[in-house]
Amino acid sequence: MAKITFITKDDDTIVCEADSGSVMELAVQNGVKGIDGDCGGVCSCATCHVHVAPESVAQVGEAGEIEKDMLELDDEANERSRLCCQLEVSDDLDGIVLHVAH
């Protein structure tokens, strides 16, 4: 079981737990504002953009090339940006903190 914390633009903190699925799905199920996941998780819509908290970066890892290309054109992108549909929930992600970008 992984515990994942989302912090929205309005500074709401939502703590969720799961053991499978994508982080985007987890956020949508828990009504995290700013995570829409319009395309259902195939890296097409960029509506699940998060900034990984500095202390969680090593745990989450880097974006792949296609994901980076998507993020490159997002005005809110920074070096800690990820599309959370591309993050699979697992014990490896336990304790991470994600700031919703929009």
Binding site: D38, C39, V42, S44, C45, G64, L73
Partner: peptide, 24 residues
Amino acid sequence: DRKINPHVAFGFATHNCLGATHAR
């Protein structure tokens, strides 16, 4: 079951399709 599918069938960026949710 294409897993990564960064298509632009609903457009991209500012002017992306307003009706995409209805279509999906």
